[in-house]
Design a binder for these strands. Structure first.
Lengths: 153, 153
DNA sequence: ACAATACTTGACTCAATCAGTCGGGATTCT
DNA sequence: AGAATCCCGACTGATTGAGTCAAGTATTGT
């Protein structure tokens, strides 16, 4: 699994939305400025996240984006799978994007058995972390702040 | 970490050399045929592995390749790092290929802290497996065979 | 009503990487 | 000498990554 720029931007944007989760929406422009993401590119990314059901949008003057589900219900594994495809290092051990490889017998492939373990290790971490967990980490890492809005992602 | 075709071929070739480790060499042609790898492409790959010190070669009529170090001394982590670059999903948590990312404070980056864990999980598996271990797995997975040369990778 | 604000959609560019291919040169064994 | 084998660099064609851009549609404050 390799996280592309696109993927990293998506996570950062989702994290901003997680930190400000509530009934209101956040403008794309604000996310872009706060996180130093090219605005046009971010539009594209958020659109993608929207059609995947991770976020919802509101148009017009007071428009913007917000998380569709609660931050506790979105795991990083889900997000990254949607954005980057398989978490597994090779297709033949991927559960969600399985692809047969050229070796004669997968059941007896030693390389595959190692890659299986790698996959499990990656998935183990990523399934266990939700956007809400990420928010918790942000708060833990920041320590006590005077202004609770004054955080860094 | 994503394993490219090139990387997979390299592992398969190294595994063949591991299974036949001894004073003699193996012809590139034989590896290519046995593993169904395009010969010219494999030449390129083995050349790379040679200049990295994983294998050594012998030219001329009875020429070929063999492992330079013992199969127990080459970890998959080393091989893949050489072939594919960083094992980490993002540059800012890579030990061997560190690259600063654009977030304002790495020490307080929640995403980074998760990626750190992913990296550790991947490296944990891959550092622990050598070519010799791979060979053991081949033998385990095959079960008892009539002809000990009749194995699959 | 209407202008301003913000999201929407699809096409487009530019560079890098991947997966090979190819031609010919250098060595070594017989 | 001649065949087998490795050695080396250049080349190609397809795909992906990171953005950019233009023109459009919906919503709302006044």
């Amino acid at each position: 699994m390799k996280l592309s720029q696109r993927g990293e931007y998506a996570l950062r944007a989702l994290l901003v939305m997680g930190m400000n989760h509530g009934p209101g929406v956040i403008r794309i422009k604000d996310i872009a400025q706060q996180q130093n993401i090219p605005r046009r590119f971010l539009e594209q990314i958020l659109n993608d996240l929207k059609s995947a059901g991770f976020v919802q949008s509101k148009r017009g003057v007071a428009g913007g984006y917000r998380l569709q589900r609660g931050p506790g219900e979105i795991s990083l594994a889900d997000i990254i799978r949607h954005l980057e495809g398989p978490l597994a290092p090779v297709g033949c051990v991927s559960v969600n994007y399985y692809q047969r490889c050229s070796c004669p017998d997968e059941g007896k492939c030693a390389i595959r058995s190692v890659m299986q373990e790698v996959r499990d290790a990656i998935v183990g971490v990523l399934e266990g972390v939700s956007v809400a967990h990420l928010c918790d980490r942000v708060r833990d890492l920041q320590g006590p702040l005077e202004n609770p809005l004054d955080y860094v992602i």
